[in-house]
Amino acid sequence: MSTLSQNPLAGPALRAAPVPSQETAVRTGRVTRVFIYLVLLLFALFYLLPFFIMLINSVKPLGEITGGNMMALPREWTVEPWMAAWSTAQIGVQPTGLRPYFINSILMVVPAVAISTLLGALNGYILTKWRFRGDTILFGLMLFACFIPFQIVLIPMARTLGILGLAGTTWGLVLVHVVYGLGFTTLYFRNYYAAFPTELVRAAQIDGAGFFRIFWRIMLPVSGPIAVVSIIWQFTNIWNDFLFGASFAAGSGAPVTVALNNLVNSSTGVREYNVHFAGAILAALPTLLVYIVAGRYFVRGLMAGSVKG
């Protein structure tokens, strides 16, 4: 079942084009081709439509939404909903907008991504270049940790964070995301370093280079692509997390996804749909930007996450 060997996205092929397009041997007739294009375009529409509708309705005054057609372009363009979502909308009991929660998310995601990626790199280096008895079992234990339903750790985690004095804090969430992201980052670096010639490491060892020197001088300089994959994967996952944020930091320390859900689902009085949409797009913006800038790597991360071992 070695999907890895035939998966161009894993391992050393990371340096090549994202999905190498090759000559397809299959020939298709003209009618079939028209049909294929039609289906492909329809699906493109299906994927784009919800986001497009959110976008155009986020720049409409509320009256145009409740009394009008969601597909229609705004008659009167306004940035008011965006301003409101960012800085004045009611989140819970405070009219703060999403801004403070957006900042919480940044403060959470940066250290969590940095720490889990660095640890993953070290683990991957050890599990491939300093192998010892039972290392595969240890890796298996780390890997299974990626796939547990997090409901199984919610209760003890809530208690532990309370005991550590980290309940409701951004640092508490950093800890949680580092722990449950370690399996994935280790997986990425392990698969990547497995393809790196061990002879080079041994040669450096004979020349007197130690454990850390080899890591800094030999492994890290070639780790660029996989580091990007790991960073993007962790960034997307942690930014988009809702369960941990809602469970452990529901108050003023909440990440932006939790704040967005509060904005959308618990607003009393008039439902300001345009503000909801602007808020949703704001919350999605960082991961979307990363996707637009480095989408190729994002896809590789997804693939590597699905193709284990």
């Binding site: 699906f43 493109a44 994927y47 784009l48 439509l49 919800p50 986001f51 509708i53 959110m54 969601m70 997307t236 930014w239 988009n240 809702f242 996804t257 967005l260 859900n261 959308v264 749909y273 909801h276 949409f277 949703a280 797009i281 919350a283 999605a284 991961t287 979307l288 990363v290 996707y291 989408g295 994002f298 896809v299 997804l302």
Partner: peptide, 20 residues
Amino acid sequence: IYLYPMALSFIVTGTAWKWF
């Protein structure tokens, strides 16, 4: 275009579809 929804949070997806 087919892949971008995967970059979104389920909360964002839910907000969009709830209304749609």
